[in-house]
Design a protein around this nucleic acid. Structure first.
Lengths: 347, 347
DNA sequence: TATTTTCTGAGGTACGTGCCTCAAATAGTT
DNA sequence: AACTATTTGAGGCACGTACCTCAGAAAATA
């Protein structure tokens, strides 16, 4: 049997009350006594039973995810991962909820944050585009005692706000190296497409991508980013023109996680299977395109990891602990047709 | 507040005892009463407090990993992940240990398994090369009531033995596609090196690799596997001869996780940076070689996931639950220089 | 209706820890 | 030595669930 506080008390020659005072760093214990208990802990290999402790304390953590309303398949996947996490963390005294707010109205987001306080929630994970109002509201929220993490999309916040998500510059660099190697020393141009270049993530990915191409693949040159703004007809026109003007486009890099519009425009102009195409995120659409050979690689981040990591970081902050950086680093995954796994494709 | 069994009893109009009988599937409850309770669970959103349940039951799980003594860096990483898991799972009433046994003596492994029983351990995760004795001993152990998972290396066991590890055929196929794309349509030969081809994993990887090369990259042809048997001089001689005979070797695929001997032999014969080199597992050695550009890609599986997954599967089996297949599938990771992350390189 | 069988309720103890109170013992000070 | 301040012990209740017993109610059978 694993030793309990009772065993510890006996081993240290003190009472349960004193053991409790030492374990929970309560005042009123002589230094020598503390040392005696600490020694006994080592000696008998005592480890606190965390679930019993949580049970006794009946402490509850309430966390909320704040997500944009409008979104692509990736966002929907995040939502369903949050639902899963809600169930999984319920057993650990942790309530997880989420709320969706119009993302193109920073004012509304800031207003919601301003209404929140420690009485509503213990921590909040925010996924929102960059905006000064949001940044300010976030800081005030933090000062009111609510823990905050920036989720997936970075706000370039101060050091007190944790970030959970991938390093987008590295993600772009990963795409860059793959593109370079896939194009195998040939000379050519690379078409880069995004929904918008107003998003920080897309800009960072583009920078990482260009960095690698410039440094290691001088025979490839990336064209200026095409912005779709979700408009299929316009995108098709622009992309069509580019393919008419440049006959040496050997690769396409889609920066944003919504790839449908971009891919359809490219497919209308050329044969996707003859072109190296790299995109982001494991969406059902992208998985299908990988299987069919129209996509060559996908750079992804694990949505379940993102959600769980955000929750763990918030809980660590609530407990006054430092999150374990190495555990919370989100990996940049590379997917090709062969390593998709059996997993049912999640919407 | 979250509803408790007491609330549930009230909502269902029954007593605590009946709620308990329903929740734990004990006999002696009328069907209609069971349905009433189930309905009430839905209605008030009751979720059992697992830690309280475990506390009350004071159930403990004892699991053991059985690993080979001789091993490479990958094995050492596994061991340190087991140590980590031991600490993490201690809070969940789960004791995790490991034992190392000479892997080239199936007899010894079988003997150890024969001595084990339900009084020693609740479950065991076995990583051992294929052998009839081991397979038989495993089955007898299972029949004695000890749960068993095949860990990392498959034993081609019956359906009652779970397997935790990657699909090595798919891992080889992943390497195959990458190699094909990295070689970019050029004609050439691929050198394949393993420590031994007597291990099932290596054979499966090779099959997957060949499958993709044959199907999608007919201009590439893979040479017969070179076996190093851990002998640097011999390997260098064989590899040197191959490079002298064939001047169109454009890629090298190292099947086994110990890559040092193979890479040194190739480096002595040609410039690694001009050759596409793919290997397996995230070892410190391989990470360094990725950084230096001598390795082009690494196919990896996450050792921490492997360990935790094995423990979760064992626990599910002990509880008579079915493991969640999608959660326990180990992903085939692709690593290149850009997505290695900040993580300190683990030995 | 009488008898047996099957269900159900009431109540208890236990798990390991947190957190409280009150009295007693000890240490430190004058 | 007498006093105060500090430290310690003993004990109890609580958290939410498991698991046990026993009595009594309801249903099924004779």
């Amino acid at each position: 049997m694993r030793p309990t506080t009772k065993d510890l008390a006996k081993a240290a020659g003190v009472s349960l009350a004193t053991v409790d005072r030492v374990l929970n760093r309560r005042p009123g214990v002589r230094k020598e006594t503390v040392e005696a208990v600490t020694a006994a802990i080592e000696e008998i290999g005592f480890e606190r039973n965390i679930s019993a402790a949580n049970l006794a304390r009946s402490r509850r953590y309430r966390f909320e995810f704040l997500l944009p309303t409008a979104g692509d398949q990736f966002l929907e996947t995040l939502v369903s991962r949050i639902e899963e996490a809600r169930a999984a963390f319920a057993a650990e005294h942790t309530e997880v909820g989420f709320r969706r707010i119009l993302s193109d109205d920073p004012h509304q987001i800031a207003a919601h944050l301003a209404r929140l306080g420690p009485e509503d929630t213990d921590g909040i994970a925010i996924m929102a585009p960059e905006a000064p109002q949001v940044r300010d509201a976030t800081h005030r929220l933090f000062e009111r005692g609510v823990k905050v993490v920036q989720f997936v999309a970075g706000q370039l916040g101060g050091p007190e706000v944790d970030f959970v998500g991938v390093d987008n510059n590295a993600a772009g660099a990963t795409a860059g190296r793959l593109m370079g190697k896939f194009c195998g020393g040939r000379t050519g141009r690379i078409l880069v497409i995004a929904d918008t270049m107003n998003a920080r993530d897309n800009v960072e990915r583009r920078q990482g991508f260009d960095r690698i191409l410039t440094a290691d693949f001088p025979d490839l040159s990336a064209l200026p980013s095409v912005e779709t703004h979700g408009d299929p007809a316009r995108t098709r026109r622009i992309v069509g023109n580019l393919f008419e003007n440049f006959h040496d486009i050997s690769g396409v890099y889609v920066l944003s996680s919504e790839t449908r519009v971009a891919l359809e425009a490219v497919a209308a102009a050329t044969d996707l299977r003859q072109t190296q195409v790299i995109a982001h995120e494991r969406t059902a659409f992208n998985v299908n395109k990988l299987r069919s050979g129209e996509l060559d690689a996908v750079i992804a981040q694990n949505p379940g990891h993102l959600v769980r990591s955000a929750i763990r970081v918030l809980r660590a902050r609530c407990d006054g602990r430092e999150p374990i950086a190495s555990q919370e680093e989100i990996r940049i995954e590379i997917l090709i047709r062969e390593n998709l796994g059996q997993a049912a494709d999640r919407t």
